[in-house]
């Protein structure tokens, strides 16, 4: 049984209940900065998008990438450099980050899809570690210091992103855009072929699909969306450092997705919110965050592999069956 196949939910084409829930969620997100600290919310949005991008690969193609930090952190570096050194407009800088991440995804994906399963995970981990070493050495990343003091600038030359609320709504818009793209990919014919590959790769091959191209395509899209998250993060927090490209970051995004629910659309969002909130909470407590993340990992893997959202959906499914 492949990861993410525990429940092969037909993603419904927006039922009325989903529409209502979606509207409520968007309203809540619009109102959120008046109740919570915007920086925390923006951090959650960036990581939620990152986790959704990662989930596109594990949840819908069944490929566990252990190297997604390279795209997230790489894009953060590209965006930060463009905004700070070249003085680019923030959106253009973010788009450069996305493009950079996509190119990296093409290179890494081309190598990694030659193997499957556990080897795929090890190869992506090794390649992203190689990228981290490169980031440590090339001059433009400024080594251990990272790129600090990235200007937020004016979006399209008009909107002042130094206003916390403006920055928040721009981040929210980027997140919703990314989320919408992922939803479209998953529910497209392309997405259905991806799911077919996840369920039975040989059969997909026998049906005449060029599986490698689909996998590579999904890998590049996932990398580009992770880049969108990373680039946005660089503008929001105004820095890009080695932390973003490290293997720990790849581990964190896996955890967010696993905790929320692999292969569910909103699972990664739930997972990212929880992990970020817990990190904030425990950091104030002087409890080592790494240990906390490790413990959640172990609990998730042993007790609820479907993740929070996955378990809830499973429960609802069972109830429906019981009622019918």
């Amino acid at each position: 049984m492949a990861v993410g196949t525990q429940y092969i939910a037909e993603q419904p084409k927006l039922r009325t209940s989903s529409k209502v829930l979606g509207a409520i969620a968007i309203a809540a997100l619009l109102a959120a900065p008046f109740f919570f600290y915007p920086v925390l919310l923006m951090s959650i949005l960036c990581f939620a998008l990152f986790a959704c991008a990662f989930n596109l690969l594990i949840g819908y193609v069944g490929l566990l990438s252990f190297g997604h930090a390279a795209f997230f952190g790489g894009a953060a570096y590209f965006t930060a450099h463009a905004a700070k050194v070249w003085g680019w407009e923030p959106l253009a800088a973010i788009l450069l980050g996305v493009a950079g991440a996509a190119v990296m995804g093409l290179l890494m994906g081309f190598l990694a899809i030659r193997r499957q399963g556990i080897y795929f995970a090890m190869i992506t981990l090794a390649l992203s570690q190689m990228f981290a070493f490169i980031c440590l050495q090339v001059p433009f990343t400024h080594g251990e210091d990272g790129i600090q003091g990235v200007p937020r600038g004016y979006l399209l030359g008009i909107l002042d992103l130094n206003e916390p609320l403006t920055m928040y709504y721009v981040t929210l818009a980027i997140f919703l855009f990314g989320f919408f793209i992922i939803w479209r990919i998953v529910n497209s014919p392309f997405g259905n072929i991806l799911k077919a590959i996840r369920e039975n790769e040989r059969r997909a091959v026998s049906l005449g699909y060029r599986v490698d191209r689909y996998k590579l395509g999904a890998f590049v899209m996932s990398a580009a969306l992770a880049g969108l998250a990373g680039g946005t993060k660089a503008i929001v927090f105004q820095f890009a450092t080695l932390t973003d490209v490290n293997w720990q970051m790849s581990g964190e995004v896996i955890l967010m997705t696993l905790l929320g629910g692999i292969g569910t659309l909103i699972g990664p969002v739930v997972g990212a919110s929880l992990v970020i909130a817990l990190q904030k909470y425990f950091a104030a407590w002087n409890f080592p965050v790494t240990v906390l993340i490790g413990i959640i990992f172990v609990i998730c893997v042993l007790l609820f592999r479907r993740g929070i959202v996955g378990e809830i959906l499973e429960l609802m499914k069972r109830r429906q069956k019981g009622a019918a």
């Binding site: 581990g251 240990v291 490790g294 413990i295 998730c300 893997v301 042993l302």
Partner: peptide, 25 residues
């Protein structure tokens, strides 16, 4: 975890590695 996908073994041991490393750190 022997009955489920091998990737879960990787994830479990990854979690254990984080716990050990974080604790000693």
């Amino acid at each position: 975890l022997y009955g489920v996908d091998h990737l879960y073994g990787l994830l479990l041991t990854f979690g254990l590695a984080l716990i050990l490393e974080g604790a000693f750190r």
